[in-house]
Computed example of a mutant assay.
Amino acid sequence: MNVGLGANEAHGFAAGHALVCYPTNAVYTFIPKNACSTMRVSLAMANGCIEGVEDWTWIHPNNRTFSASLRELVTANFTFVILRCPHARLASVFLDKIVSKTPEFWALYRLEGDQLDEHGLTFRQFVDAIARQESLRANIHWRPQEDFLVYEAYDAYYALEQFGSAVGEIERKSGMDITDARPLTRHGTDQVELVTDECHADTPLSALAEMKREGRAPAHACLYDAALAERVGALYQADIQIYAERFGTADLLFPTSLIARKE
């Protein structure tokens, strides 16, 4: 059924995460956990709202400050998005937001009727929780990446797994100078020792939190066993398809989770 654009919730959500670089009229789609802090800090500096990285926390209450209007979406000079392996993105969300019990954990806790075990929750149980229909899209950090895509086709797609080699092109085409925000946010696993000794799908939050305090964390792939990798692959199959179509399967944690399209 055709509806007015203002009543199109899917478009409104995606448009709200399409951010404009005003000096160059470039539009960047912001997807959480996909280098989003680095990109938002860089965009805030390009748009003159912060002078330098010392003001980086400005980005948190200003996620939609630069959201594109319909005119800006239509007239953009350059449009781009950064995508990520869905299995890696979900593992990153868990280790960052859930293990550290940020507000995202407590929002899920309430959504689950206060029934999550705040000490014993495992990655497998986290997947159980977000797999429920009312939970999968309840938080932008684990919401499918496909929901953020406002354009049918972007001028450029970049894989987070190859972000370092893409920075030069992004700067040249978008007009932004990219400032690495990872040392400031400390959201990722780039500054800890990655543990690959065993599967941690059923390791409780309390043990994972202790590992983080010791400067260690499971490698993303080690949060999965075969059954869990298959389940998450089915849950985020559309995202896997989009990623594979653009970049192939070499950087997917579990390439076999890609289900062949039926002709």
Rank of each mutant, 00 (worst) to 15 (best):
T122C: 02
A217W: 02
A229C: 08
E152W: 12
L5W: 13
D251P: 05
A44I: 05
R124F: 07
L111P: 03
C85N: 14
L258K: 05
A238P: 01
R172C: 06
A26P: 01
Y22V: 13
A91R: 03
P204C: 02
A159Q: 00
P32C: 02
H220A: 12
P23Y: 02
R124H: 10
N8G: 02
L121H: 01
R186V: 11
A88W: 00
T29G: 00
A15F: 07
Y158N: 01
G215D: 03
Y224M: 02
H60F: 15
A207I: 11
A244I: 09
G188K: 06
K33W: 02
E104Y: 13
G215C: 10
A91S: 10
E210I: 14
A201G: 03
G215K: 07
W58E: 02
R172M: 08
P61M: 04
A207D: 14
G52T: 08
L121R: 00
G6N: 12
F80H: 03
A260N: 08
F94R: 01
R246M: 09
R71G: 09
A18T: 13
D251R: 08
F254T: 00
C199N: 13
E112Q: 14
Y109T: 04
A68Y: 08
V195W: 06
T29H: 03
D225H: 10
K101M: 14
H87V: 08
A181L: 13
A219M: 08
N2A: 06
E118D: 10
N63P: 00
C222A: 04
R40Q: 15
T203H: 07
T79L: 10
L73R: 04
F13R: 05
L73S: 08
P183K: 03
S37W: 05
S37V: 08
H220W: 12
T75D: 06
R182G: 04
L90E: 00
A260C: 09
N47W: 07
A250W: 04
L160A: 06
